[in-house]
Design a binder for these strands. Structure first.
Length: 270
DNA sequence: ATGCACTCCTGAACGC
DNA sequence: TGCGTTCAGGAGTGCA
């Protein structure tokens, strides 16, 4: 569930708690997440001071004064529990810093923790293949046009391809396509450049609004504080099968596109 | 190179 | 009430 806005919300919650703090201890209680937790993770983090927190695509980045960056991915059900009274099942990794204790909690274990040398997100091999950040100026209609040229795959697949643009997931793909008036199944290579420019703008708008709302809390996402995001109340099509389209009043359709639930208005989106 | 089905995992929701 | 089934989906893998 966590897409870019949710990860951004989590990082913004972690930053004031952790910035400048020294990590006292890291306990790996269960290491077989989406990828194995590095065996030396605890040793390399213990005693280090946290000097920066950031985000790249759906990855959170926690850098230390030892030149390492702890990279986390929340997968679908990952979250951080702040100062837990007691540890629960699925609290896989516990980070104890000077002032706070954080448990990385992930029932489905689609999330992951990595430790990489270096600090600049662009230099981290793990993140090397990612496309531009959608909210950066470097992402625009021209980027989409280049990626779409000659492609017969649905435009929604392109939005979900992290090599094309990094951070969009299933929910915001549907929302952005609705705002741009483009049918999710339309072949990417058969969309005019002007419409792709509109799509890039729609991506930026929906992500920015979602960040401002603290992300979307459907099932699993919560901020570090425990606060729920509210953007799910502003979805125009996602999860609204059969409801009235905010554009034309017709019924919003749900269909499966490449084994992903997809929501769209057949009349407004072409 | 491209497209796409499959896979991992668990809990919630649903149907009988 | 209780059981079994379906669904949710990020992203890597493998095949056509």
């Amino acid at each position: 569930m966590p897409e870019l806005p949710e990860v951004e919300t989590v990082v913004r919650g972690l930053r004031p708690l952790l910035l400048g703090q020294r990590i006292a201890q890291v306990e790996v209680r269960r290491g077989d997440l989406r990828w194995p937790v590095p065996a030396d993770l605890a040793d390399r983090l213990a005693g280090a001071r946290i000097i920066a927190l950031g985000r790249r695509a759906k990855y959170g980045l926690i850098s230390t004064d030892r030149g390492d960056t702890l990279v986390f991915h929340l997968g679908m059900s990952g979250r951080f529990r702040l100062d837990p009274d007691r540890l629960l099942p699925h609290d896989h990794v516990v980070i104890s810093a000077s002032g706070h204790r954080l448990a990385f909690h992930d029932p489905r274990r689609f999330g992951s923790l990595h430790l990489v040398a270096g600090r600049a997100a662009s230099a981290l091999p793990l993140l090397a293949g990612l496309g531009p950040e959608p909210l950066d100026a470097a992402f625009d209609g021209a980027v989409l046009a280049r990626a779409a040229a000659g492609r017969t795959a649905p435009i929604k697949s392109l939005l979900l391809d992290q090599r094309v643009v990094a951070g969009i997931g299933n929910i915001y793909a549907s929302e952005a396509l609705f705002r741009a008036g483009i049918a999710p199944a339309r072949a990417a290579g058969r969309i005019a450049g002007q419409r792709l420019a509109r799509l890039a703008d729609a991506v930026k708008a929906v992500l920015a609004e979602a960040i401002a709302a603290g992300g979307s809390s459907l099932r699993d996402h919560v901020a570090v504080s425990g606060e729920l995001g509210t953007f799910q109340h502003q979805f125009r099509v996602y999860g609204r099968e059969g409801e009235a389209c905010p554009g034309c009043g017709g019924q919003i359709a749900r269909f499966v596109l490449q084994s992903r639930a997809t929501y769209a208005c057949r009349r407004c989106q072409r």
